[in-house]
Design a protein around this nucleic acid. Structure first.
Length: 200
DNA sequence: GCAGTGATCATA
DNA sequence: ATGATCACTGCC
């Protein structure tokens, strides 16, 4: 009898100890796993991420040096960086790269919870997760999912970083259409929905 | 389109 | 101590 039958699927430090853009891309299709207060475990496939590359990236919180808030980004990879934005919304990031490189990946969306603030609200993520490792003991971790081929990944500039000069336009946001993850969505039985966009 | 919301950080 | 700044969301 095995008590930890799925341990091999938990993403651990070596996975995160790489450049943030690589981690951001490979997290698409992985599961964000959260254990609720009653011990119930829920899995959500990651569908949207953004990479923040380090001190040289003007959109990165570490671009103007270490502060009490962003200090966790300078530490080991595979640790949560959670902070409050606009006084209301918790943002969930995971630290990437070697120690001393203040890089991270913002988790912007999972199936059923699209948008960085909605995601944390829906999953109950808050300041208590900050600086804890992405591991079972923290009640919040990643597990390997399906590999999403690069062809099915859309890359765009990051959201809400217009202040960052040329770094505002670099394609460091990664998105996959949930309908292209049929294994994850329970057989792709989701109803088709079409939204007309008329804006430029 | 824009107000809400409050921690964070630079400045003093 | 004070004020500007937000890696956003929801309603106008």
């Amino acid at each position: 009898m095995t008590l930890m039958p799925t341990s091999s699927r938990v993403l651990c430090r070596p996975f995160f100890e790489r450049p943030a853009d690589r981690v951001a891309r490979e997290l698409l299709g992985a599961f964000l796993v959260v254990r609720g207060a009653e011990g119930r475990v829920r899995r959500h496939a990651v569908v949207e991420t953004e990479a923040y590359l380090g001190a040289h990236d003007l959109a990165c919180h570490a671009a103007r040096g270490m502060t009490p808030r962003n200090a966790v980004m300078f530490g080991p990879a595979g640790v949560w960086y959670v902070y409050l934005c606009y006084g209301m919304h918790w943002m969930l990031n995971v630290v990437t790269g070697p120690v001393g490189t203040p890089a991270a990946v913002l988790i912007r969306g999972v199936t059923g919870h699209v948008g960085p603030g909605r995601l944390t609200r829906g999953l109950g993520i808050h300041a208590g997760h900050n600086a804890t490792p992405a591991a079972r003991g923290s009640g919040l971790w990643f597990e390997a999912g399906v590999a999403v081929p690069p062809r099915k990944i859309e890359r765009t500039p990051r959201i809400g970083v217009d202040y960052a000069g040329e770094w505002a336009t670099k394609p460091l946001r990664f998105v996959v259409d949930p309908e292209k993850l049929p294994m994850i969505n329970g057989g792709g039985s989701q109803a088709r929905s079409r939204t007309r966009r008329t804006e430029t």
